[in-house]
Simulated assay, not measured.
Amino acid sequence: MSQPPIFRRWPPRERGIIQLYSMNTPNGIKVAQALEEMHLPYEPHTVDITKGDQHTPEFLWINPNGKIPALYDPEGPDGRPISLMESAAILTYLAEKTGELAPVDPDGKSACLQWLFFQMGHIGPMFGQFGHFYVYAVDKCDHPYPVQRYADETRRLLGVLERHLTNRDYMLGESFSIADMAIAPWVDCLERFYDAREMLKLWEFPAVNGWLERCTRRPSYAVALEVCDPKRR
C-alpha cells in the first residue's frame, strides 16, 4: 500500500521513520519512553482520546479496537512496513527490533513476558477502573462500592509489587527493562493523575516508591510525559 489510511489524518513529515500515534496516558507513556530509551528515530502524532480521535476510520485502520498507542514502522521485518497495536506487543516488538531492554535468554525472556502480562491483565485494568470511579465518574456514581472495590484491588496489586521489588532495583533485577516501562507509568498515575496518595496510603509501599523514583527520574520519562500531550498542539 503506497499510503496507509492513517497518513491521511496524521500526515508524516518523514515517511522513512517510525510513526507513533498516541497520547500521554500510562499506556502511551510506556511506548514513547521505549522509543527514547532505544534511540529510535520516530515522529509522534497526538491522538486526542478526549475528542474521539481514536474512533475515526483512519485510526481504526491501525487499531480496530480504537485504543492508543499504535505504531507504524516503515522498516519492519525483512524491510517491510508493519503496523502494531497493543502497548505490550509494541514494547516487545521494539525490544526485539533493537536487541535492547529485554532479556534474550529463555529464563529472563519468560520473566519479562510474565510481568508484561501482569501489567496488561491486572495493573492497567484495575488501576484504570480505580481512577475512573475515583476521579472521572464521581458525578455519575456516588455509591462507595466501586471506589472501595478498586482501591482494595489496587492496594493488593501494589502489595504484589512491593514484595517483588524488595531487594531489587528493577522488575527483572538490576537492569531497567520494558517490564519497568510497562508498569511504572500506571503506578505513577495513581498520584500524578488521580491524586490518590492519601486514599491509597501510597507511603506504605517503600520498595515500590523507591523503584518508581528510579524509573521516573530517567530523562526518557520526562520526554514521554510531554511528547503526545494534547496541550502542546
Rank of each mutant, 00 (worst) to 15 (best):
N24T: 13
I123T: 15
G52T: 15
E37Y: 02
K67S: 00
V227R: 05
P103M: 09
W10V: 14
Y72Q: 05
F59D: 07
G16D: 14
A196P: 01
F118W: 14
I183H: 13
R197D: 12
R197F: 10
F176M: 01
D78Y: 05
D105V: 10
A102Q: 12
L157I: 12
P185M: 07
R9N: 10
C215E: 07
P11C: 03
A32E: 06
Y194P: 09
A224M: 11
P57H: 06
I123C: 10
A179E: 01
F127V: 02
H143P: 09
S87E: 13
R13T: 14
P12I: 13
P125Q: 07
R232P: 14
F133W: 06
V227I: 15
S2Q: 09
L202V: 04
P64F: 08
A34Q: 08
A196I: 02
F193P: 05
G16V: 09
L94Y: 03
R218T: 11
V187R: 00
P57E: 09
L200D: 04
R192G: 03
P81G: 11
I17W: 06
T92Y: 06
Q114R: 04
F7V: 08
P185R: 04
H45V: 01
L161Q: 04
V104F: 05
L190E: 14
Y170L: 12
A88Q: 14
F176I: 02
I18T: 11
G131L: 11
M181H: 03
T92F: 10
Y136H: 15
L165V: 15
L91V: 02
Y93T: 00
W186I: 11
T216V: 15
K231W: 01
H45E: 01
Y150W: 05
H164S: 12
M1V: 06
N27T: 12
W115V: 11
E96T: 08
W211F: 10
L60Y: 02
F133K: 04
R214E: 03
K51V: 14
A137M: 08
S2P: 15
H39M: 11
K67A: 01
K30L: 06
L71M: 06
L212H: 01
P74R: 02
T50A: 14
M38R: 03
Y134L: 03
A70V: 01
F130I: 02
I178Y: 03
L40R: 05
E36W: 01
Y194E: 04
D188A: 13
L84M: 02
G124W: 08
A88E: 15
H45M: 04
N209V: 11
N24A: 07
M85H: 02
H55V: 12
A95Y: 12
G16P: 10
G52Q: 10
L94H: 00
V31H: 01
Q19W: 10
G121D: 00
V31I: 03
E100N: 08
S83T: 13
R9L: 15
T154S: 04
E75T: 11
Q3C: 07
A70H: 00
V135A: 11
C141S: 07
L71A: 04
E14G: 03
G79N: 09
G210C: 03
L161C: 06
Q54H: 14
I90T: 02
F193V: 15
G76T: 00
M23P: 07
V31E: 02
A70I: 02
P26E: 05
E14S: 06
E43V: 12
R168I: 06
N167H: 14
P206K: 00
R149V: 11
T50Y: 07
V223K: 12
W186L: 14
